[in-house]
Design a binder for these strands. Structure first.
Lengths: 237, 237
DNA sequence: CCAAAAGTGTTCATATTACACCCATGT
DNA sequence: ACATGGGTGTAATATGAACACTTTTGG
């Protein structure tokens, strides 16, 4: 038992993990709750923060414990603290935002009584707590982010074609299709792509395979102010 | 006394308030701590979250209690939770980011033993806790924000000239001076400015005074995706 | 009529858009 | 040889940077 002079809230972390597998929809990693409240309902992976643990570490730990997913890009999203957001009492949740290439992280090892599953972003089940709101905010963040930071590195496999990269952008932004010629010109101008080979055994002209040049990529990520980058990613919608 | 089955962290809010008075530097609102730890040192206004109080409400309450400043634009910045960031034990702090027109909020009513003061952003004193880091992050946010959202509404007086608006942008971005002609063209293209009169009694051609058209402004703020806006504010540096 | 700051016209270079076309492969 | 994507060339238009100029006020 722990005793304090003033009342204290509980603090949890929740993680919104976006996965991409090349399709026309992003996927979201959800778990089915094994205990009350909201037992049996779907929710974001997450849990209580340990007392000697950094917040981000806590998010990564809970994610791995509940879903087996690890080694991925995360950043803090927002802290949700409405007094009535959890029926158990005052619970403040620090939400994280994560991106992962689904084909490289397909296995979803559920812990305990909980199930974990990838849901298409446009076919989500009813969600526990205020998790629908958290997901909404994460989706907005993703769409805003995609305009000033190249996100492909996290969502695509090592090697990919320009058509795949374009499909990713179209999927994230939810737009029909933009001009191939112009997409290519803009992306190539950033210098972040490196040619690594060609497709094999396809019934058409084989596409050039690219990988992200990590150095250039990191540089571009740091200097968000880079005009090159903004101009390259700032697609009309 | 309050007793819990598991240990819980304390949760605080801290507010980074940027003020602008037309000068060549932004100002930051700081308080001098009246109690331990860091007694006598300067810190961000803030304090413990009440159990039945929303986080943002808590930030606004603490700000007003400690500095008298109220009625201002705030948004959540980041949550700081390193286990050792506070010598009193585990304290997680939700930081807020605020903008205010200094000439309209000059009075700084200090509560209790605490002093409150506006410091030029480039002449800050030594700060308590990890507040220097919080301020650094807030400054980065401001500079990023200014590129996709018009921030003048919060920082300038009701009526202002284009030269004043330009000086604000130059101050926030910390650049020497950009081309007057082009600045004007870009800003006017957004349609968010409304002519309201002219300067009086100046020893030169009187400048047109503008105010923000609230409707257009709100619309632009919502649709951050607006190409008009991005192009208008995306200044080269 | 001068100083000071406001405000405008215009040129030139570059970027963006849009559309049509050619290319390489497996069957 | 043809279907299927992959991958260019390029003209018309829009945008942006730069610079010099005109305007309006008070003293």
């Amino acid at each position: 038992m722990y005793t304090y002079k003033y009342p204290r809230p509980s603090v949890t972390v929740d993680v919104v993990v976006f996965g991409y597998d090349g399709g026309r929809d992003l996927k979201l990693l959800l778990i089915q709750r094994g205990g009350e409240p909201f037992k049996g309902q779907w929710a974001l992976p997450g849990g209580f923060v340990d007392m000697d643990e950094d917040l981000e570490a806590s998010a990564l730990r809970e994610l791995e414990e509940e879903t087996g997913v690890r080694d991925l890009f995360v950043e803090q999203l927002f802290t949700f603290g409405a007094p009535d957001r959890d029926p158990r009492g005052r619970v403040i949740s620090v939400a994280y935002f994560a991106l992962v290439n689904l084909t490289a992280h397909p296995a979803v090892a559920a812990s305990d009584a909980e199930q974990a599953e990838w849901y298409p972003l446009h076919e989500l089940p009813e969600l526990a707590f205020d998790h629908a709101r958290i997901i909404e905010m994460a989706t907005n963040r993703l769409r805003a982010k995609v305009r000033y930071q190249p996100i492909g590195f996290e969502l695509l496999p090592e090697e990919f074609t320009l058509a795949e990269l374009q499909a990713l952008y179209e999927t994230v932004l939810g737009v029909p299709e933009f001009n191939k010629r112009n997409f290519r010109t803009r992306i190539m101008k950033t210098g972040m792509l490196e040619e690594v080979g060609r497709q094999k055994n396809v019934a058409h002209r084989p596409a050039v395979l690219y990988r992200f040049n990590e150095d250039t990529y990191q540089q571009l990520m740091e200097q968000r102010d880079s005009a090159v980058l903004r101009r390259a990613l700032d697609f009309e919608i």
